[in-house]
Simulated scan of single mutants.
Amino acid sequence: MAEVRWGVLGASGFARRDMAPAIHMARGNRLAALATRSPEKAEPFRSITEDLRIHGDYNALLADDAIDAVYVPLPHTLHIEWAAKALEAGKHVLVEKPVAMRAEEIDPLIALRDRTGLICAEAYMIVHHPQWHFVRELLDGRTVGRLRHVEAVFTYDNSSDPGNIRNSAETGGGALPDIGVYTYGSTRWATRSDPEEITHADIEWEAGCDTLARVSARFPAFTAHWVNSMRMLPDQWICFHGTEGLVRLTAPYNPSRFGPAHVDWRGTDGVRHARTWPGVDQYVLQVEAFSAAIRGEAPFTWTLEDALGTQRVIDMAYAAAGGRPAI
């Protein structure tokens, strides 16, 4: 396959701002088509590439024989439906996080992926950034000694945008589906471990959406505490604290916007070390990794099984807080 030809389902702002340009810039990939029922929303995509076919219907794009892979950035509650339809149409699928609203919804998609033999994965871009691979190396090398605790924060404030789909329970809104996947998933991925139990969950709700979640978990060898909010000053960081050292990331999830990708660490000698990765586009790396998986050159770093593991933790957090309120 000389190049992977992509179609995008829906003209979301995130697709226009981040993923469509990344597809266009990624080596061996081409943005070929967009499906949207609103022609005016298609125009900004033409500034990325003029050679873009516009379909007025999602199914029309899935029927397009000139498309190899489909990117699904639709509202959260539509991810499973359209990822499945894309697989049934013979397309490889990169679906935005979270893949589903509950863990049990992901199992049938895994089965469909296996039956079709196509690549289907969650767009979890952070694991394609070299800062996270470096953190894994530090933890695997026991730079921190015995890991005892992980602390992570990811917050922003969208209270001034009540029409945002993240503020709507009907479209799968809430802090944990949107950004809890990062604090929870990055802890799991970096440590290669899953929590045994949620020991504390304090969640605040607005119209059926969790707007502030303070959650603690116990893993087999360490504890974790995560704070996620859609009603707080924007902030993000994560710290891995052990018996002999600690590792901290100051822009773990959105280094392109929140600051440079930066990891610092120190041990018992008190000497501080730091490493920074300027100018890395994790979205481009994600697209290139996905197309490499399609070509059979390398396995994709983040599987549906990985997404399933993180969704299980989110489900555990909601259950520990008494469950989601009725809408």
Rank of each mutant, 00 (worst) to 15 (best):
E122G: 03
I126R: 10
Q131D: 07
W132N: 09
H133Y: 00
F134D: 10
V135Y: 03
E137S: 15
L139Y: 05
L139K: 03
R142A: 15
G145A: 06
R146T: 13
L147P: 01
V150W: 01
V150L: 04
V153I: 14
F154K: 03
F154G: 00
D161E: 13
P162Q: 01
G163Y: 08
R166S: 04
S168Y: 01
S168A: 14
E170C: 00
T171A: 12
T171C: 00
D178V: 09
I179S: 02
G180E: 10
V181F: 11
V181L: 05
T183G: 04
T183N: 14
G185W: 07
S186C: 14
T187M: 08
T191V: 09
S193K: 05
E196Y: 00
E196P: 00
E196M: 11
I198P: 02
T199F: 07
G208R: 05
C209Y: 00
C209D: 01
C209F: 02
D210S: 13
L212K: 12
F219W: 03
F222G: 04
F222K: 08
T223A: 13
T223R: 08
V227E: 13
S229E: 06
R231S: 14
M232N: 07
P234C: 01
D235T: 10
W237V: 01
E244C: 08
G245C: 06
L246F: 12
V247N: 05
R248H: 14
L249P: 03
A251M: 03
P252G: 09
